[in-house]
Structures are given as structure tokens and as C-alpha cells.
Amino acid sequence: MTVTPTIPADSGLAEITSTAGSLRGFLHGLPGVDQVGAEERAARLATRSIKKSAKAEAIDLAVSMVDLTTLEGADTPGKVRALCAKGMHPDPGDASVPMVAAICVYSDLVAEAVRALAGSGVGVASVATSFPSGRAPLEAKLADTRRAVEDGAGEIDMVIDRGAFLAGDYAKVFEEIVAVKAACGQAHLKVILETGELVTYDNVRRASWLAMMAGADFIKTSTGKVSPAATLPVTLVMLEAVRDFRARTGRQVGVKPAGGIRTTKDAIKYLVLVNETAGPDWLTPAWFRIGASSLLNDLLMQRRKLTTGVYAGPDYFTLD
């Protein structure tokens, strides 16, 4: 399959997003998601068997895609520094383990993470816009974002206003994303849809398009604070959305499932899904990320099982 990147960069999107009515009309005009079909397809792809050298490659790829995350009220500067050290050297005993893609922290701890990661190549991502609920005035959300960017965050994870989205006020959600994108400046913007609160796959598809049209660089499934978090079918729908969006506009948008991905097996299922849905173009840390904390240790344990031939134990890896 060949993708033609020669399509005009806009394809009429400006017109669609010019009024609340046309935006609403466009989003509701998107084809509905076949729920049974999406779930079957995701379940089918999850049965792919990835072994030996392919598995070794998948594990390293997954490690390099991890956004190592700590988003607790109890986060301390010390914990963030420890997490940064782990992100730079996931397995201190084995230099061949790649670095993670980024460290994801709350906005007030960005400066700490930037200091700890200086010059390492690991990015700093910050959640912003009154994560995880998104219930704050726009000025507060923008101030939150600007502060994180000033402190050196290279990536901003914003949450959309699910209340406005579910009430059908798409224009409000759209304008908010546009405003946050403007506040981000050079920083990449990841838009968290919180699919666990969007209820239907149709809504997930609409929210994905809405975020991409508003300028998102990444669309992300969840905050990790709501259950269900990332699931395979939801990610499938989002991957279809970024694929279709690129086909229409020529602009590539990344995807980041987050929350609930704890085992190597889960992570590899997502990689298969990416390859089969959006295509190998997305199979790099630049376009696909996995938001996780406990996943990394499981990846390292599986990696060591492959290199040493014996099952590894969690006692031999650092605690997060």
C-alpha cells in the first residue's frame, strides 16, 4: 500500500471548523464504528504469536516507546529524580537496553525532571490543564500549560473537557485545544480523550478527529485515573482515525494508549495493532507511545529471560 503525501495540507478542514454547526455536522457525519467488528478485530490481532528474535525486537521497541509515568499526589522531587534515572538506564546492568521515550510528571515537577534528564535525550512530558478531570477555567488551564513549557517540558499532555464534549458543545472543546496548542509553542501537544468516559466508540472517533483538527500532535486514550483505561478496541479506533486523517490531510498524528498496560504481552499486542492498523510508519517512538509505570519492569524481566534463558524475578529490578 502506498500513501500519497501530496494531498493538500488542509483539505477543507478550515471550512469545517469555521462554525460550530459545520464542525458538529462533520463529526456526526463520520461513519459509525462497528462495535462488534472492532472488538473482534482487536481480539483477533491480539492472538498473534511473537516469539524469539521478533519478540526481542518488540521488547526493545516497546521500551523505547514507554512514557515512564508518575502521577500521584504523593510524588516528591526525589521520586521524580529516581524515575528519571530509571528512564535513562532502565537496566543498569545491561547497557544495551534502550532509554525510554519520556518521563511524564505533573507540571510542578517538570523543572526537577528537566534538571535530572539534561542532555540524556529522554524527553520530559507534563500533564497539564488541571489533569485528570479538566474541570478548571480556561485561564487556569493555559497558565498551567505555560508554566510547564517555561520549565522545559517538551511535551504537554492535556485533557479535554469531557463534560462539554458529552453535552455536544464540540466548539468549546475545539477552541480549548486550539488555545492550549497556542500556549504550547514549540512543545508537542498530546490530547487525552479519556475514552473511559466517552462511553461509545463513535464518540472516540469523533473526539479523535476533533483533537486532530484542532492541532493535536498526539491523541492519547486515557489519564489512567478512570477505569476502563486503554483498551485494544479503543486504540484500534484511534489508530484508524490517525490513518484516515493522514490520508485526508497529509499530516501524521501520533497515538498513545495509557493506563492498564502492565505486561509485555499487552504491550506487544498494541505493537501488532499499530502495525496492522495504522502501518509501520507509526511503529516508532516518534509516533507511538505507551503511557505506563509498572510495564517497564515486566519488559525488562522478559528481556532478561530472553538473554539469560532463565525466568527473572522482580527482586532484581528497581522499584518505581
Binding site: G309, V310, Y311, A312, G313, P314, D315, Y316
Partner: peptide
Amino acid sequence: PWIASHMDI
């Protein structure tokens, strides 16, 4: 042998 070599036993 798998039990004997398992690091978590």
C-alpha cells in the same frame, strides 16, 4: 530445571 533456575523462587 525451570523451577531450579527461576529467579523468583
